[in-house]
Nucleic acid binder design. Structure first.
Length: 586
RNA sequence: GCGAGCGUAGCACAAUGGAUAGUGUAGUGGCCUCCGAAGCCAUUGAUGUGGGUUCGAUUCCCGCCGCUCGCACCA
């Protein structure tokens, strides 16, 4: 018998069929609205009857009864179907159905096979991280990196082709300042001993100088124009600077397990800008204003007067220019049907203008308009509720943040498990520390700012990485005690359907994985998955306390081992999708 | 000034227009001769404010209050 991975989607189809049968052609308009239900009511609920009946002045309960009567026999065998309240249809999967799902989805590979139906044939290009060269990665960058990586893994798992592009800021105005600083302010000794620090100092010093004296600002801009028009000296400097920062970026990416397929920075698009200027002008979208080439959007309350500057008055490009060229390249070269760009929420205006412009441009030139998602996220705040900074007022460097996370985790692990060899404790501290930082960024709705507190993210209690990693080790320890591999199918052979309250509750939570993946990927919000995993870990703890797994009765033991094995599978699969490394013990 | 986002228990956060607004912490009271107590069970406590739409609003719309962010050549 085929067991569908996403039971809710399956029910949705069955309800549509039943509506057609029972309501006639008008049933075409019925939208089931199946969603996971509160466990008190069932596993899934269909809410669509209420709106449908209301709009037609019908009795919703009567309509619900008609639809339920027309459901396939198979559905009625699998579920307890009830009509409740004003016209909700509730579906409660019977224990045999729970067992069938758990037996079918018994490995990460099979889960992936089930999930890969979601986005089969889609090609998403994900643009994330995208740091500026010549600046170190700092705490402000981590959220986009971590969320971006999780989104890529999730979409891939759910069947999409994903192209990861690190759109490095290697061509902007900062280079004018940096080159000017290099030429006038550099300290050669410092450049040799700690090149990245020195570059950052030069940028800051040049930036400050440009703010003080307009002549310096003009000089910096002139350096940029020289660079962008191919000046050999500036080009060589630019390459040197990029090489230095790229090495530093790669070190952090390795540490966080983040990878890219391409790192086409802004400079890559330099020779593709003339086409943008030309086409937008020819299409009547771009116009000269105060010496710059800009796009206005007359239909928009704000962008009718707030320009989208696509070429600066000194002739230099900016990020609007390169972003437009990038849009085109991603559609024409990569053939992406969906473009996802992650940046913090402060850049909303820019991307709204970019998208308005792109749509009009592509439409006027007969190109396919892709789907576009600007995935935004809030800032990380200090415990005072203000932008997180070091005592000296600088942003906290990511390298230092990650090192501190590992140190703090090491101290905690040493406290809890002093008998483990130091090498093991270091390894655990790495997974816990880095995982904690990651999970903190993922577990909250990305729209909001969040307050960063070491004690909170490294706590072993609550919706945290340490709690989830602990749950994993506890399941693993059951199998270790037996000398068995949790992923060996023979371990769970002969399992019967879940029977006790705790077993059933855990099984029902496990089958919710599919709906969670669907929700997480349609909304591109990893916190849905985090919440689910935390609930799953809690459900397991309840089960673990209520029902002893290693009992003598072989049937009972087998079904509890099955539930434990699947809990482990889904916890590990979910955590890996989020980018966390799991542990056997801690 | 214009625009955007956010206001949910003491604190930190959930809730894809659905049923009695969930979870964690902190507080209170229980549970280790028993598979890892880094755990479990029970319990106290909240939608800024005023309208509107809806069978149904934390969610959508409008006003007000509060906080944050953005707004011509940085990205």
């Amino acid at each position: 018998m085929h067991v569908s991975f996403d039971i809710a989607a399956d029910l949705d189809l069955n309800l549509k069929d039943a509506a057609l049968i029972s309501l006639g052609p008008e049933g075409n308009a019925f939208v089931p609205e199946v969603r996971p239900a509160d466990p008190r009511h069932g596993d899934f609920q269909a809410n669509g009857v209420l709106g449908y009946a209301k709009a037609r002045k019908l009795n919703p309960r009567a309509v619900a009864e008609q639809i339920v009567a027309a459901l396939r026999d198979n559905t009625k065998v699998q579920f307890e179907v009830t009509i409740a309240g004003p016209g909700f249809i509730n579906f409660k999967l019977k224990p045999a159905g729970l067992l069938a799902w758990l037996q079918t989805y018994d490995s990460a590979g099979h889960l992936r096979t089930g999930a890969s139906e979601f986005y089969k044939g889609h090609h998403n290009l994900v643009d994330f991280s995208s740091p500026n060269t010549a600046k170190q990665l700092h705490v402000g960058h981590v959220r986009g990196m971590v969320i971006g990586e999780a989104i890529c893994r999730l979409l891939e798992f759910c069947g999409a082709k994903v192209t990861r592009d690190n759109h490095i800021g290697d061509w902007g105005t900062q280079f004018g300042k940096l080159i000017w600083g290099y030429k006038h302010l550099r300290n050669d000794a410092a450049l040799t001993s700690d090149p990245l620090e020195e570059l950052e100092r030069l940028y800051k010093a040049a930036d400050a100088a440009a703010k003080e004296t307009p002549a310096t600002l003009d000089a910096a801009r002139a350096e940029l124009v020289k660079l962008q028009s191919g000046d050999a000296e500036n080009l060589a400097l630019w390459k040197k600077i990029n090489a230095i920062s790229s090495d530093a970026f790669q070190e952090i990416y390795r540490k966080l397990g983040i990878r890219f397929d391409y790192e086409y920075g802004e400079s890559f698009y330099n020779d593709k800008l003339q086409q943008v200027y030309k086409e937008l002008t020819a299409a009547g979208l771009a116009e000269e204003s105060q010496g710059a080439l800009v796009v206005f959007h007359p239909e928009h309350p704000r962008f009718k007067t707030q320009p989208f500057i696509i070429r600066k008055s000194d002739g230099a490009s900016n990020y609007a220019s390169t972003d437009l060229a990038t849009m085109l390249y991603r559609v024409e070269h990569f053939k992406a049907d969906t473009i996802i760009i992650l940046t913090d929420t402060r850049q909303t205006d820019h991307f709204e203008q970019l998208w308005l412009t792109t749509q009009k441009w592509f439409a006027k030139t007969g190109r396919t308009v892709p789907h576009f998602e600007h995935v935004t996220f809030g800032s990380i705040l200090g415990e005072d509720g203000k932008a997180i900074k070091t005592r000296s007022g600088d942003p906290i460097k990511l390298k230092a943040l990650l090192a501190e996370a590992e140190e703090r985790a090491f101290a905690l692990v040493t406290e809890k498990s002093p008998d483990l060899p130091e090498a093991d404790r270091r390894d655990i501290a790495n997974a816990v520390g880095i995982g904690a930082v990651r999970y903190a960024d993922l577990s909250q709705n990305r729209s909001s700012d969040y307050i960063f507190a070491w004690d909170k993210i490294l706590s072993f209690e609550g919706n945290t990485a340490p709690y989830l990693l602990y749950a994993v080790t506890r399941v693993r320890s059951i199998f270790r005690k037996l000398g068995l591999d949790a992923y060996d199918p023979s371990v769970t052979a002969g399992a019967t359907a879940p029977a006790t309250d705790a077993e059933i509750a855990l099984a029902r939570k496990l089958i919710g994985f599919a709906s969670t993946l669907r929700l997480t990927t349609t909304q591109l919000r990893p916190h849905f998955l985090c919440t689910y995993l935390h609930e799953l870990a809690g459900e397991f703890s309840t089960f673990y306390a209520a029902d002893k797994v290693l009992v003598d009765d072989p049937a009972v033991r087998a079904r509890r081992l099955l539930l434990s094995a699947r809990t482990l599978l889904i916890l590990e699969t979910g955590l890996n999708l989020l980018g966390l490394r799991t542990l056997a013990r801690m």
